Simulated assay, not measured.
Amino acid sequence: MADGLPPMEMDFGANGAPIVIVEQAEVGDVAGLLTAAPALMEPKWVFALAQMSNHLAQGESYELIVDVAAFKADYMAAYEAEDPDEDVAPGAIRLHNFGIPDFDAMQPPRMEGNTLVFFAENIFMGIPYRAVMQPGGQPVYEPVAMVQ
């Protein structure tokens, strides 16, 4: 990345854990990431900070939601494609089992003071989570409220 950030790449370490490579150094947590690239705390880098913090916390299990309208369109298309009268099979994941998220509560990644707030999709279940990360901490994920 340019304009104030060193080159960074999301990857996985030899043990399979998510890492971010900052220049040549492997970083395995948010504190190390911010030590290696302190400019990530600048407001203009909020999307990069959210992306890398989410990767370090969840690997490929959660995908950052940047465009809420696109996520809503995809979610509703998948929801409407399901048969609501279908018998629920053990282990089957259906969006109808969860409902419809409160899309109005969702926003692109942002800073609230020094706290990072972002939304991410749990890839296995297909539902959105709100993540909050205090300075120097790890993101804490909670499911988005379902309105139906």
Results as ranks from 00 to 15, higher is better:
P6W: 15
M8L: 15
F12N: 10
A14H: 06
N15E: 04
A17I: 08
I21W: 04
V22H: 07
A25N: 03
A25I: 13
E26V: 02
E26K: 06
E26T: 02
G28C: 15
D29Q: 14
D29G: 12
V30M: 09
T35K: 07
A37E: 05
P38N: 09
P38T: 12
P38S: 06
A39W: 12
A39H: 05
A39T: 06
P43W: 02
K44S: 03
K44Q: 13
V46E: 08
F47W: 01
S53D: 00
S53V: 15
N54P: 04
L56I: 12
A57R: 06
G59N: 11
E60Q: 07
Y62T: 09
E63R: 15
L64N: 01
V66M: 12
D67V: 06
V68F: 05
V68I: 09
V68D: 01
A69P: 00
A70H: 12
F71T: 10
F71M: 11
A73N: 08
A73S: 14
A73V: 11
D74L: 15
A77I: 00
A78V: 03
A78C: 02
A78P: 01
Y79G: 04
A81W: 01
E82S: 09
P84W: 06
D85C: 11
V88E: 03
P90N: 07
A92S: 14
I93F: 09
L95K: 13
H96Y: 11
N97K: 09
P101A: 13
D102A: 06
F103W: 10
F103H: 14
D104L: 05
M106C: 06
Q107K: 01
Q107T: 11
P108C: 09
P108W: 02
P109E: 03
G113D: 03
G113V: 04
L116S: 08
L116I: 12
V117Q: 05
V117P: 11
V117H: 02
V117T: 04
F118Q: 07
F119M: 07
F119D: 05
E121C: 01
N122F: 02
F124G: 00
M125L: 15
G126A: 07
G126P: 00
G126D: 08
I127P: 00
I127Y: 00
Y129F: 13
R130Y: 01
M133S: 03
M133W: 13
P135F: 05
Q138S: 13
Q138E: 15
Q138K: 14
P139C: 01
A145I: 01
M146T: 08
V147Y: 12
